[in-house]
Amino acid sequence: MVDIINALVLIANFIVVPGLTYGCQLGLGALGITMIYSVLRFSNFAHGEMMSFGAMTTILMTWWMQAQGISFGAVPTALFALPFGIVAVIALTLTADRLVFRYYRSIKAPPVTMLIVSMGLMFFLGGLIRFIIGPDDQNFFDGQRFIINARQFKEMTGLNEGLAIKTTQGMTLILAVLMVGFVFWFLRHTRTGKSMRAYANNEDLALLSGINPERVILVTWVITAFLVTLAGTLYGLDKSYKPFTYLSLLLPIFASAIVGGIGSPIGAILGGFVIAFSELTITFAYKRVLGYLLPQSLEPQGLMQLLSTDYKIALSFLILVLVLILKPTGIAGGKVI
């Protein structure tokens, strides 16, 4: 019995907790992708850089607060710098829309053109970010490292295996739940949110109903700014902030949005968890888990790993490609481009 609990704790520590955290981060990113896709009708390749930009402004604000001696004890300062990052990204997305995307909307450019335009923006933002903060790793975490660490857990429970929950993981879960809850509430229950869904569903009819498209688009960018800043900052806080990683995050995020069904907000969140958990479960070495569960004589020799950890990220691309081929509408039934 104790063995089974030990095995479960092991799985919780190495798969469930990190999977939930990473899934939330991907889901927040994918929700942004899906909203832009439904309302503005293009795949935003600048999304990763927007996340990076949000994280960067939050970092700069955190540093400033730290330099002023502002501290919140156990809670990371970054949490309080977040609103400033969000404001900066709102300014960024609205400026980008005004200077870049609006024109292509007015000439009714096809989605591919918009996609290529967003690639130009991706280059620009990538450069701007590196210009401001440099290409290197930045650490901006402060406060208490763990909500509960492995040693404390072992002492508390008397088990062999420890369960550690980092502060950043707890923060990610709480903020993601609040944010996603807010977005869903907004889309379901406010007039503006409903008008966004209406516009996404049937643009012409929305116009005939007197819905102002520019306002819908403005609100979409603002919500996207919240989502990207949160996703970018939480990822940077939890792993580490490096401008380069955000370009590589773009694909897992697209994968999440598409796996869930692009255009479907719930799908984006589900997709994030599918990607996160499949990465972790397939590359996890089950040797120790099986060691607890199987009789001694059957104890496995190898690592019992389905795929080497090196292939972790490649796996999300593989899932993406498989979904694209087998079921392009995704698990929650989104649109097909």
Binding site: F42, S43, P110, P111, V112, L115, L251, F254, A255, I258, I313, A314, F317, L318, L320, V321, L324, P328, V336, I337
Partner: peptide, 16 residues
């Protein structure tokens, strides 16, 4: 696949 998806799929395949 159509335009957007082809772009994302080929990007993913090249990463693999």
């Amino acid at each position: 696949l159509r335009s957007d998806y082809l772009a994302i799929a080929t990007l993913g395949i090249s990463e693999i």
